[in-house]
Design a protein around this nucleic acid. Structure first.
Lengths: 236, 236
DNA sequence: GCGTGACCGGATTCGAAATCTGGTCACGCA
DNA sequence: TGCGTGACCAGATTTCGAATCCGGTCACGC
């Protein structure tokens, strides 16, 4: 079979698995049903992934990888998106849009079941890398005068993670007090991060241009790493 | 029996229940054991509370009520604590200190079991009142020029709740990335809320003095309400 | 030689019996 | 006489073995 045909079949299986995972939740999903929906035999699923967990993990990692790709594309399209406030604004919008990302970030154990724990462990490296990326990003932006220096870098990272985490969770926790439109919620997050960390509401384009290449490189690396992580689930 | 002697016995039962709840979790706590630790017969417990749930709910409500009392005392002791950044700073410190509050805010179902759901329902009124209090507080502070008006009040409430929620959750979620000292974490929260909402880092004492009475009244009402809620669990 | 589904055994679920515990109340002690 | 108590009951929960299910394999066939 052609390699590209094989890849297409793999994607079809991933799509079926994703659909079922969201509709039924981890516990009720069976490899039989996934195979049936993808129009392949059960054994074929195991030609692509060694275990069911590897397959479902791939579903989650693919969602994360797609998100990273979108973020990178956005930075490339408009360099102002290197600012944490802008980037997290988009992250919240992506998160609200994609049910897989929602399930992962909200630890939705109805959907993910024990995949929660498995995924947390498997993604530990990727998360650590994301954190390092954020750290380098903040350091670079500080050096270019785009992020303030009234707090230490570590405190700013702690702030970023807590703030973002709060807005992400708020989606599930206080839906009644959140603004109706997703963009409005994202704008409040953007405002919060900007006032907490950044120097200007609309910074000098020359500063942005100077800082952009280094940060694009960071996110490019992260995007490659996450794509690699999806592939790593496949059989050799 | 003297009313005060009866009250003291009730407190002893509450103490025993609290101790057991934290040590064993809701599921393992029995009324027998609570009674034994409080040196009373099991029937006596039911002279104070109609059900086991009412008793354990009282444990949680007492913790909340104590917290409200502390907050009110702090505002009275230093009127600058009417600012959301200061108040939330203290809230985080209280939260980190008190295992009962931690369990409630983190939805720790190992400790609270199904009390989680019961408590959420019973405390709905109190929570709604807290939200209203925050709303009035922000409105008052805006009128006195202590809180900015670049966001709407509802957006500022959403921001406050999301930010606070994020820092509270971060305690449990990313302990490895949080600053070691509790005060440092609280300071980052304070910084975030201040820059997101407030006008001055160290506002004119006259503005504070002018806004304080109205806000003290708000928190006094909240404190009374929460004390009342604890009593409401008792048998008539 | 790639794809398949019947098949195997460990994991999960089910259900009935056994145990536990919230809540009551008749008793007894002050 | 009345407050405090613990034996008691019924319903909830746990237990544990039987029954079912499903992840993963592999011999077959296209």
């Amino acid at each position: 079979m052609e390699p590209e045909e094989r890849t297409e079949r793999g994607e079809r299986i991933l799509d079926a698995a994703c659909e079922l995972l969201l509709a039924w939740g981890y516990r009720r999903v069976t490899t039989d049903e996934i195979a049936r929906r993808a129009n392949v035999g059960k054994g074929t699923v195991y030609l692509h992934w060694k275990t069911k967990d590897a397959l479902l993990l791939a579903v989650v990692l693919r969602a994360k990888s797609c998100d990273h790709a979108r973020q990178l594309a956005r930075i490339r399209a408009d360099h102002r998106n290197i600012l944490p406030s802008r980037l997290l604004r988009w992250a919240l919008l992506d998160f609200m849009e994609d049910p897989v990302l929602r399930a992962v970030y909200l630890d939705d154990s109805d959907v993910l079941g024990r995949l929660n724990d498995v995924a947390k462990k498997e993604m530990a490296d990727l998360v650590a890398e994301s954190v390092q990326t954020l750290r380098s990003q903040l350091t670079t932006l500080r050096a270019h005068g785009l992020v303030r220096e009234d707090l230490g870098v570590d405190q700013q990272m702690y702030a970023c993670m807590s703030i973002a985490g709060g807005f992400f969770q708020a989606e599930a926790l206080y839906p009644e007090y959140a603004p109706d439109r997703a963009e409005d919620r994202a704008d409040v997050l953007c405002h919060t991060v900007r006032t907490a960390l950044e120097t200007h509401a609309d910074p000098d384009p020359r500063l942005i241009a100077a800082a952009a290449p280094a940060i694009i490189a960071l996110y490019q690396r992260l995007e490659e790493l996450s794509r690699q992580e999806v592939r790593r689930q496949l059989r050799p």
